[in-house]
Structures are given as structure tokens and as C-alpha cells.
């Protein structure tokens, strides 16, 4: 317990990476969109995908955190298990309030009538549906999904090297190519689309499968890091 806490404290010393930069990115992305909204008035609604920047950042963060801190921690005599738990705890400790902030701004966006600019940044259809609390949960799971996805990639690289990484992406590519094959089972793309539309109304429905994948990432990462060397 104490060791995990120590790893957490170690991560927390790098506030730039965990706190300042992601939110500066998010804020910058938001401001750009506000400026666009102010200076380029359009009749319709302005839907911005700028929020994706935050998620991409967390994904990359998941990949880079071990590169930065794993060799250092191992050099300091930290067990791989403690490193892993501490890093996972840090990710959760950040995702919870981050998701809360996202949910809060999503609510604010609705309340202020899209910032008076018809700007949809924090509250996007399909992604942010339902009560604020549910949005918070979904955002949290999405953040964890991308972070631990990144961590898994880092783990593959650490344990299996560049070759392992190539194999992994090769498999992903194969799976992606299998999708059209799977579509045939539904008869056609239209049929697939209809099935989706019937079962998936919002990101909230994807939350559970995302969570399952996140757990798989966590377990796989742990197993990989356990045998990683520096």
C-alpha cells in the first residue's frame, strides 16, 4: 500500500504532464472553437470534435508514462507490481475529476445555450446523453479506456520490443479487415447499421464493453510489465 502511494507521489511530482498540459490543450482547443464561433457566424450549429484532443493526449500519455517513469522507478528499487498499481491508481485519480470537469462543462454548455454561439464542444450528441452523472461515468470509462490502451501498447513494446508491437498492430489490422466479413453475416452494411441504431443509442451503451476492454488491457499490461526489463 505504502509503495503504491510512493509511486503515486512520484507521478504527482510531474504536474505538467498530468495536470497542466492536458487541460491547457483542452482549453486551447476550446478557445479556438470559441473564436471561430465568434468570428465566423453560421446559421447552423457548430459541432466541434476538439474534445478529442484531450482523449488523444491521454492515450499518448498512457504510452509515454512508462517510457518516462518505468526505468526510473525500477532503478529506484520499486517492484513492477507496485509501479503498475501506482500508475493505474494515478490514472484513475486523474480520470475521475477530469471526467467530472467534462460532465460539468457539458452541463454548463447546455445551460448557457451553447455558450451563445451555437457551439457544441463539451456536449455532443451521441457522446453526451442522459443525466450528468451518467455522462460523468461514461467520460470516466472512456478516459480509462484510452489511457490503459496506451499503457498496453507501452507494455507490449517494453516486453516484446518493436517486433511485438508490429505483431500487435498486424493483428489489429487483421481484425479490422474481418469486420467487412462480419458484416456479411448481417447481410449488408445497411443491416449492420440498423442493428447498431437499434442497440446503441449513445456512448453510454458502449461504456460497458469499453470497461470490459479496459479491464483486459489492465490485466494484459500487468502481465507484460511483470516480465519487462530495463
Amino acid at each position: 500500500m505504502r509503495k503504491t502511494l510512493s509511486v503515486l507521489k512520484m507521478h504527482w511530482r510531474d504536474k505538467w504532464s498530468w495536470l497542466y498540459i492536458p487541460w491547457i490543450i483542452c482549453l486551447a482547443s476550446f478557445l479556438v472553437n470559441v473564436i471561430i464561433g465568434v468570428f465566423l457566424p453560421s446559421d447552423g450549429e457548430l459541432y466541434s470534435g476538439g474534445l478529442v484532443a484531450l482523449f488523444i493526449y491521454f492515450f499518448v500519455s498512457g504510452i509515454l508514462t512508462p517510457a518516462q517513469t518505468f526505468p526510473f522507478a525500477l532503478g529506484m528499487g520499486v517492484r513492477r507490481k507496485d509501479y503498475f498499481l501506482g500508475t493505474a491508481a494515478m490514472a484513475v485519480a486523474f480520470s475521475v475529476p477530469s471526467a467530472a470537469v467534462l460532465a460539468l462543462f457539458s452541463w454548463l454548455e447546455q445551460r448557457t445555450g451553447n455558450w451563445g454561439l451555437n457551439l457544441h464542444f463539451f456536449h455532443l450528441p451521441f457522446v453526451h446523453e442522459g443525466p450528468v452523472l451518467l455522462q460523468w461515468l461514461t467520460m470516466l470509462l472512456l478516459l480509462l479506456f484510452v489511457y490503459f490502451g496506451g499503457l498496453l501498447i507501452a507494455g507490449i513494446y517494453r516486453r516484446c520490443g518493436k517486433v511485438g508491437l508490429l505483431v500487435f498492430f498486424g493483428c489489429l489490422l487483421l481484425m479490422a479487415m474481418a469486420v467487412p466479413a462480419a458484416v456479411n453475416i448481417w447481410g449488408s452494411w445497411a443491416g449492420f447499421g440498423q442493428w447498431l441504431a437499434k442497440h446503441v443509442h449513445s456512448m453510454n451503451e458502449l461504456a460497458l464493453p469499453l470497461f470490459v476492454f479496459t479491464l483486459i488491457f489492465l490485466l494484459a499490461s500487468y502481465l507484460l510489465f511483470r516480465r519487462a526489463t530495463v
Binding site: 511530482r13 510531474d14 518516462q68 526510473f72
Partner: peptide, 8 residues
Amino acid sequence: SQKYPDNF
């Protein structure tokens, strides 16, 4: 050749 986090 100890590696340290870049921002440390």
C-alpha cells in the same frame, strides 16, 4: 545511465 523522467 539512469533514466529520469524528462520533466523532473
